[in-house]
């Protein structure tokens, strides 16, 4: 049994690694298709088409652009696995330091958003399943279909308009009140920094500015949790053991919320990776609208400046984190539900 689990984890790990390699090869070929010559590649690394030839030559040398293409691919891949993503042409600092600065801020949005959307999703899904084919069920379905169908910028703009501007309850833009002094950088997470520095006004301001983007992110992604919770709960309510618990005299409410919901929540683990991917993609728009300086804002600015290096590197990093999330979810699911391992 133990060796089987290990085998399962190893197999999933190898699959994930192959996926990463294929992704990197794809992105590498993409950039080399639009810049087929070493000089064109050097211009991309320099970030501007008007660079003196001497500088182009030094760039060609540092990135090894004169070498054969397969050798370059191997160099590129090894560099990525060493955490060396090149120098950003706009900011003139290593790309990895920019990502290390912006990614934690996005995680500060995405992780609470995932927790919130799982909570909303499980609650509404359980509600819909227990009131199946009654008005509540239809209302829940209507709400989540509407949130599925709404573009992220509509959700964000509505929240900003109604809660931020009309009611004035929460700040509509920025990450933190710009008048406050930033605490020292202990970690790359602003919230942790403010806690370590015991800078409570800064901490409260951060939380205030986080609420609207987090709500927007969870609004666009909770529907999928609702749908899965509802359908897997309905499946369980058909099983013999659920009927048995009703027959034994467990109250219907208790049977639904403890027996059915607990068993229905195991498949939800696989959703977490999907939710993570959804939220990171949604964060691109939502951070742009709320002027929250995270990974999404960074990507949007890279689009405006046509900064290819930053775009490709962020794609690789997002891909790596989603693949890692998938791997973790797979392993967790395999450990919790042994039937999956047999596949």
């Amino acid at each position: 049994m133990q060796s089987k689990t290990v085998l399962f984890i190893v197999r999933r790990g190898i699959n994930a690694l192959i996926t990463v390699v294929i992704l990197i090869v794809f992105l590498f070929s993409l950039i080399h298709i639009i810049a087929p010559s070493p000089a064109a590649m050097a211009r991309i690394y320099a970030g501007s088409p008007h660079v003196p030839p001497a500088e182009l030559l030094t760039i060609e040398k540092t990135y090894g652009l004169n070498k054969p293409i397969y050798e370059q691919m191997i160099i590129y891949m090894v560099a990525i696995f060493h955490g060396n993503l090149g120098v950003d042409p706009t900011y003139k600092v290593p790309e990895i330091s920019l990502i290390a600065k912006f990614l934690p801020r996005t995680l500060e949005l995405v992780i609470p958003a995932i927790i919130l959307s799982v909570a909303i999703g499980i609650f509404t899904g359980a509600l819909a399943a227990s009131k199946r084919r009654k008005p509540t069920d239809h209302v829940v379905k209507g709400v989540y279909l509407a949130t599925w169908a709404s573009p992220p910028f509509l959700v964000a703009a509505m929240l900003q308009l109604f809660i931020g501007y009309d009611l004035g309850l929460l700040p509509a833009v920025h990450m933190v009140n710009p008048l406050l002094n930033t605490p020292q950088n202990y970690t790359s997470f602003p919230i942790l920094n403010s806690i370590i520095a015991r800078d409570w006004p800064y901490f409260i301001s951060l939380i205030h500015h986080m609420i609207l983007p987090v709500i927007a992110l969870s609004l666009i992604s909770f529907g999928i949790v609702t749908r899965l919770t509802r359908s897997s709960m309905l499946d369980i309510m058909e099983t013999d053991y659920f009927r048995l618990s009703i027959m034994k005299g467990v109250p219907r409410k208790k049977a639904i919320y403890s027996v059915a919901l607990r068993n229905a929540s195991i498949p939800l683990i696989t959703l977490i990776a999907l939710l993570f991917a959804y939220s990171v993609a949604g964060a691109v728009i939502i951070e742009d609208i709320f002027d929250y300086h995270g990974m999404g804002w960074f990507i949007v600015h890279a689009i405006y400046t046509l900064d290819y290096i930053a775009i490709l590197d962020t794609t690789i990093i997002v891909g790596l984190s989603v693949i890692a999330a998938n791997l973790i979810a797979d392993i967790l699911y395999g450990v919790l539900d042994p039937r999956v391992r047999l596949e």
């Binding site: 996926t19 294929i22 992704l23 993409l30 993609a281 775009i311 794609t315 997002v318």
Partner: peptide, 25 residues
């Protein structure tokens, strides 16, 4: 299927952005 997985791994929006920006948006 491995190639398919690689394309499914990155959120669609992010990959579309990467490809279309590389093609000059």
């Amino acid at each position: 299927m491995r190639v398919t997985d690689a394309f499914l791994a990155v959120p669609a929006l992010i990959l579309v952005i990467a490809i279309s920006v590389v093609l000059n948006a």
